[in-house]
Design a protein around this nucleic acid. Structure first.
Lengths: 194, 194
DNA sequence: TTGTACCGAATGAACGTTCAATTACATGAT
DNA sequence: ATCATGTAATTGAACGTTCATTCGGTACAA
């Protein structure tokens, strides 16, 4: 009896995580299926037992990663606090997620700028849309923010956080809580109703 | 005698522009050299007369596009105006460039999030660094901006402008000058010294 | 026996790159 | 003007490799 079979994460998740770590470093097309398989400890054919094609694997991974991001964001949210405090907490959670999961960040960044994003445009994490987008919509409707289309708000925020996280990671430096707050202030000061 | 030969731009630029328009839509690896050649009206082998490899072609294109962006930005700058006015003018120029050259925007976005960017990290447009980066450094040193590392400032600004340009392009809508000013205000309010 | 999970060699298409051959053109001699 | 010569530009078929995907087979559980 093979121990691998009792791996509590299963081969499906092994493939997803293998893809995430390789694509994050090498890009979609720099990452062959054979390498994904080897890195996951499965045979090439096994991938096709779980995913119909490479494209489908990538777009399923997108939802998978976005789900994890949504969970990380929600975990830090306390609805009893003020909206501004909640906003800062949500941003800190997102920033932390990027720092702790640079492969996830790189993957998401590559995905949204790639042709995959258009091809599978209707696929997104339900959790993310329901919880996170709703949170920002609330901020707009209740006049905490300038009157910006939320579809514009989301990539703007992501852009700044990703820029900061990339900067921290590439410089191998540690941002203090104060530094992180300063970055989030850039976002907040930019979008809050003046 | 072939009329093509008298194309005042020459085949080298034809290859660059062909690559730009195809990679902007299909991504690096979705764009084979054969297609670049056909689209440029040259033979496959001709590309290798001007560029040693596909990777070198891509990274030369990056400098080429960044140069054009720098020129577009500089053209709208009037050093006799106030710094805030200059900042808004520079941002409007950059925004207009993205709207008028969506392929260039898509290409730049893909490039910075791709492994090419690391491989050819030392290559950038001299014009861009000298003129544009210098302009922002001046803003920081003279306390118009919060005290942010310029390496953090540049991607933050780009992120917001690209998000807005993408939004306008994908919705096939026209932003009024007022709308554009509002987007730039998000940036300005975020980074200006309060 | 039937079905599910898994394997990995085989397949065929697609790709980046090369190269021998051809053309275009500038230069200088006649 | 005409021709000879050398160099640069251009071609596209051919090459070798790599890749996503397929498929016949094994192992085990129900």
């Amino acid at each position: 009896m093979n121990v691998q079979l009792h791996d509590c994460f299963g081969k499906r998740e092994a493939v997803l995580n293998s893809t995430l770590s390789l694509v994050g470093k090498q890009g979609f097309h720099g990452t062959p299926m054979s390498q994904i398989a080897k890195n996951a400890g499965v045979a090439a054919g096994t991938i096709y037992h779980y995913f119909p094609s490479k494209g489908a694997l990538i777009s399923e991974l997108y939802v998978y990663v976005k789900d994890q991001l949504a969970k990380a964001i929600i975990k830090g949210d306390d609805p009893s606090k003020s909206y501004k405090e909640r906003f800062f907490a949500v941003m800190v959670s997102q920033y932390r997620f990027y720092i702790e999961n640079p492969d996830s960040m790189n993957f998401l960044e590559q995905y949204v700028t790639s042709p995959y994003a258009q091809e599978y445009a209707n696929c997104d994490s339900q959790l993310f849309v329901e919880k996170v987008i709703t949170f920002f919509k609330y901020g707009i409707e209740n006049a905490y923010f300038k009157n910006i289309d939320p579809r514009l708000l989301a990539p703007t925020i992501r852009g700044t956080l990703v820029a900061a996280a990339n900067f921290q990671l590439s410089q191998h430096m540690l941002f203090s809580d104060e530094d992180i707050n300063e970055v989030i202030s850039i976002i907040w000061d930019g979008i809050k109703r003046q």
